[in-house]
Design a protein around this nucleic acid. Structure first.
Lengths: 142, 142
DNA sequence: CCGGATCCCCTGAGATACTG
DNA sequence: CAGTATCTCAGGGGATCCGG
């Protein structure tokens, strides 16, 4: 948790107290949100709107039910999506992004566009890195 | 690792090959890039410019050397940063973002701003979720 | 039958110690 | 100082079972 307590009297004059706390919280949120499955789930739900459990899993692809359940639970807990249970005979559970979730997806959309623009560069960089691996590991400054 | 790559045998004739491949590659890049440590490393390097190994670790905070090494290697491999080795007596290795890495950071910057704007809402949603946990697990539709 | 909880196994992250 | 090697253990994936 916060090691802020052991700074003692470091603050000489005017430090905003919430500034540090906000920073930590933002760090923690980034750590939780910058997750592979969360981002993919966000994308799928943003693109298709309301979806059922298995639909999400199929659209994401390669996710286990366990991780899907866990990811959806955390996202629901963080207010990113709304979980709706229909009490019908074949169980029907639908997930839909909340405004908060949609805004996060919009923010992450930039990263998505980056990936679209740069996938070639990344593939090329990887190829170059592999071939360089045999030679020098990295650039060496004189 | 990536189960995305196991396309098996693709149909060579009919479908547009690059469209699907691009989609898979983008997916894979998102999966690799949407990583906690990658994002934090990106942020630190973008803010401070050139940094040495231990400096990065200290600025990120709470990362093991193993994960730092691994993260830096992958980012170097993907062309996000440049690794420079100075052959001096105390080893000196400096890391610096490439233009590609900087553009990714700029894209992810939106997510960072989202976290700043929404950390209160997230905290509130969590509190609400906890108190609702005792009652009904989720909203039940008609 | 769908959603998801549970069990088991194995990868992969964290901490520590050691080397160039 | 910048890693690598090794150990340990939590966390993720796969299969199976259960409740509605």
């Amino acid at each position: 948790m916060s090691k802020i307590a052991d700074v003692g009297r470091v603050v000489p004059s005017k430090r905003t107290p919430d500034q540090a706390d906000v920073d930590l919280l933002v760090r923690e949120i980034i750590g939780r949100v910058a997750d592979k499955w969360t981002m993919l789930t966000l994308e799928v739900l943003d693109e298709h709107g309301r979806l059922r459990f298995t639909q999400i899993g199929r659209l994401i692809g390669g996710i286990s039910q366990k991780m899907l359940t866990q990811t959806l639970r955390e996202m629901e807990r963080d207010g990113l999506l709304q979980r709706t249970v229909f009490p019908v005979v074949p169980p029907r559970v639908e997930y839909e992004l909340t405004p908060s979730g949609k805004s996060l997806c919009a923010a992450f959309c930039e990263v998505w566009h980056w990936a679209e623009r740069n996938h070639e560069a990344v593939a090329h960089a990887r190829a170059a890195f592999e071939s360089l691996a045999a030679g020098s590991t990295a650039e060496v400054a004189r």
